[in-house]
């Protein structure tokens, strides 16, 4: 998928410039891309190091765990088919908590664990269950409360209000997660 789109971006761009006799632009973008990407990685590197460091402390001190145990109380209502005290609930909430703080990379291992434990509840091992799909919806609508990486990047690029996007993001996330869950319920009811 990525392979095709990546290729097509280049092919379409070059062909379009050839048609318009504007080939200088392509030379420029090819040369620029090396410099730009190097500058970017130099900017992103320390930001990632910083937040991964903070995240590690939150993980080691059990702060993430504590927050997620609070969350699993709410999650019970979203996942009615998971038995109470089943381990999958705690993995799901750890995953969501990590996502909330914009720590996508910390979230993935919890997500994989959550899927494994949801699979234990699955009767048809090659078919997705309703809870698995609900979990995916929570993931893909991106329950972000504090997008740390985005804030830091905005800072590096000289934003006058780097955290100004936080409140809109929370509102948008809330609305889209809610609609996502509703769509999920509708599909679950009518899908045969």
């Amino acid at each position: 998928m990525v392979n095709k789109i990546w290729g097509y971006f280049i092919i379409i761009g070059v062909l379009y410039c050839l048609l318009n006799n504007n080939i200088e632009v392509i030379n420029e973008s090819i040369l620029d891309s090396t410099k730009t990407s190097f500058d970017m990685i130099i900017k992103i590197f320390p930001v990632m190091a910083l937040w991964l460091g903070i995240a590690k402390i939150a993980e080691a001190s059990g702060l993430l765990k504590k927050l997620s145990s609070k969350l699993s109380i709410i999650l019970k209502h979203i996942f009615p088919e998971i038995p109470t005290n089943h381990e999958s609930l705690s993995y799901i909430s750890s995953n969501i908590i990590a996502n909330m703080f914009g720590l996508g990379n910390a979230a993935t291992p919890f997500g994989l664990k959550a899927m494994q434990s949801l699979q234990q509840l699955n009767k048809k091992k090659d078919t997705a269950t309703r809870s698995m799909i609900t979990f995916l919806v929570l993931n893909t609508s991106g329950v972000t409360i504090i997008p740390t990486t985005i804030i830091s990047l905005r800072m590096m690029y000289g934003s006058i209000n780097p955290t100004g996007i936080v409140l809109p993001c929370i509102i948008i996330t809330f609305l889209s997660t809610l609609s996502g869950l509703i769509i999920d319920r509708i599909f679950a009811r009518f899908y045969v």
Binding site: T108, G111, L112, M115, Q116, Q119, K125, D126, T127, A128, M132, I133, L136, V137, N139, T140, S141, G142, I172, T173, L175, S176, T177, S179, G180, I183, D184, F187, A188, Y191
Partner: peptide, 25 residues
């Protein structure tokens, strides 16, 4: 990644709901 890791082949309506959620956002 998630479905692949546990060997799920029939993902039912998962892709559509996921993409719709993105589109809504």
């Amino acid at each position: 990644l998630y479905f692949g890791s546990i060997g799920i082949k029939k993902i039912k309506y998962a892709l559509w709901v996921g993409l719709l959620a993105d589109l809504i956002s």
